[in-house]
């Protein structure tokens, strides 16, 4: 029953024996297999992210139909220009991220680092603008739970705004709950993304992704673009309800 196997075969030894590149992990046969597995794994993870945000989109859909007037009122309190600028900022960051992937592909270390840093800067700019918007909500007592006041919706100071019945004005809390839950979750994903980007920059400076192994950059790119896509949907759904009033 004793195995004739060379039981000491371990990862590194085998990798050396077959003269594989150092980044090929021992349980993969080829670099291509490893790359495909990593990208497939990342896509499956994004699938879970779709379902994660999906629950909140579901809630949004129902409440928007139930409490349309409250959603209009709530949406019109948001600053559409900040929202538009933020969308543009995020699209720019997606572009720089795509260019970072391209640079890694072409093994240009300097431009990879530049594009990654640009992505971080744009991500931080997005979060900065978001913070300004959040701060304004706190000042206007539009944060459910913390200090919500329906007064502004029942007796709006803006002459153009439509006054809501107190009953419907209560429902603006649902809008703001969803607003904070959805943008909050999105911002959390941005923060996680920026943290990872910082690590990537440090490792990219050491040349980690320009030696032919760039699936980490590629897969992080997928994550970053996904976060962008979530915002692409959040922007019209939260900011653009009946703006023509």
């Amino acid at each position: 029953m004793d195995s004739p196997a060379i039981a000491t075969v371990n990862g590194e030894m085998q990798a050396e024996a077959h003269a594989h590149p150092a980044y090929l992990r021992h349980h993969f046969e080829t670099v291509e297999q490893q790359r495909e597995a990593a990208s497939f794994g990342m896509w499956l993870f994004l699938l879970t992210e779709v379902m994660f945000f999906g629950g909140m989109f579901m809630a949004y859909l129902i409440y928007r139909n139930w409490y349309h007037a409250a959603f209009v009122a709530g949406s019109n309190t948001l600053n559409i220009w900040l929202g538009t600028i933020n969308t543009a900022v995020l699209i720019c960051s997606s572009f720089t991220m795509a260019m970072a992937v391209y640079s890694a592909e072409k093994r240009r270390r300097k431009s990879l680092v530049t594009y990654l840093i640009l992505t971080i800067v744009l991500g931080l700019a997005f979060l900065g603008i978001k913070a300004v918007e959040y701060a304004e909500k706190f000042e206007l007592h539009q944060v459910p739970g913390a200090s919500f006041s329906i007064e502004q919706f029942v007796h709006p100071t803006d002459p153009k705004a439509v006054a809501l019945a107190p009953d419907m004005a209560e429902k603006t809390q649902v809008y703001f709950s969803l607003y904070f839950a959805m943008t909050g979750m999105h911002a959390l994903h941005m923060i996680i993304g920026i943290s990872i980007l910082l690590i990537l920059v440090v490792r990219a400076l050491g040349g980690a992704y320009t030696e032919g192994h760039m699936s980490t950059i590629e897969n992080f790119g997928l994550y970053w673009h996904f976060v962008d896509i979530v915002w692409i949907f959040l922007f019209p759904l939260l900011y653009l309800i009946s703006r023509y009033r």
Binding site: W66, K171, S177
Partner: peptide, 11 residues
Amino acid sequence: GIGVFDPTKGG
């Protein structure tokens, strides 16, 4: 205290 499922807030 957000109100997605809370009936008192409309959830």
